[in-house]
Design a protein around this nucleic acid. Sequence first.
DNA 1: GTCTATATACCGATAGAC
DNA 2: GTCTATCGGTATATAGAC
Lengths: 203, 203
Amino acid sequence: MAKAKFTTSSEAVTAILNESIPLFANHGFSGVSIRQVANAVGISIATLYHYFPDKKTLYLKSIEQAFSDKAEGLTDVNNTPGTTEERLKLFILRFTELMSGDPNFRLLLQRELLDADNFRLQLLAEQVFKEQFQNVLDLAKEISPKCDSHLMAISIVGLILFHLETTPIRMYLPEGREEHNQPEVIAHHVFMLLKNGVLKCSD
Amino acid sequence: MAKAKFTTSSEAVTAILNESIPLFANHGFSGVSIRQVANAVGISIATLYHYFPDKKTLYLKSIEQAFSDKAEGLTDVNNTPGTTEERLKLFILRFTELMSGDPNFRLLLQRELLDADNFRLQLLAEQVFKEQFQNVLDLAKEISPKCDSHLMAISIVGLILFHLETTPIRMYLPEGREEHNQPEVIAHHVFMLLKNGVLKCSD
DNA sequence: GTCTATATACCGATAGAC
DNA sequence: GTCTATCGGTATATAGAC
């Protein structure tokens, strides 16, 4: 008779998600097989199916788990004392560190932007990013009231995310250096660019 | 006996790539089967294998084809008369239109940034993007000499690409509007942001 | 709760007729 | 040059023993 590998059901689920999240983040939904996940956890396929009804559910639960708690950790930036500029600087630094500190989250987000259907995108927008995006939107409204807030908010997070997105190809591009991948360097550059614009930028 | 479907070999290759490129762009390497491509072209799997030795080669040739000629079309911006600011504006508009006009190219690029190994990234950087990136780099050096050119160049193209990347989720985010997806609107916003910075931005 | 064994379908790739 | 037929392997998912 097979021994119980896990003491509780949620412990098993956690162990499975711990393996499935990095696999899906690095190879995408169709690039990962149930077999791979089961092998990584050290259980059989049938056992995996005992905890998740099918592959798609496993994927969605992986997303859900990887995205949970990301909705916090930034919420307090708008309630921080200081000038608008200081709060922008703080947000940029926090967001950059958050995103570089959790590669799986960023990779899954990028893959969802590529692969998700409208229903999943709507879910993502309304249940994961809405509150956070509203905060950036408020910051954008305050800092540049004459500008389209939505476009500005996208630009702020986009600047940061694209620098992280291009990390692997950077070294092969002209003048690419290792230090360009450090969160503090990226955050500082983005802040200076946003503050002064390209014409008066200096770092 | 089967009739010749194509009059020349290159005609057949073109017909196959015309189907494989959008498929790979929308679903990725492992999200597309040889069967799907063959069905889309209207030929048998065996016929497809007559023109391409294996799936990986078909994928790489699809990338190659989709990326060819993209190296031109922007090269002349640095030789355009006018102030640095005018040339920056021209580059942003051209690049935005180029990228929104060819979704397959952008999608394949995003997928390569996620999936490609270091060898393929190096190939991509040195044989596809090197010259173009150097042009942006030169523009960045000229426009903001006190700033790290590499970071600035990445920021300029990143701002544009991220707006296109987030197009599908935009409408579900607060204050997202259809007009935000128009290339001219994006280009104008990016230019104004780069020119004045977030503090003095107005559009 | 975990396993082995298996069902069924599809995968990439090939053989060989025409 | 194009096809049908098929190979061996792997995919997702299930049945049933323990």
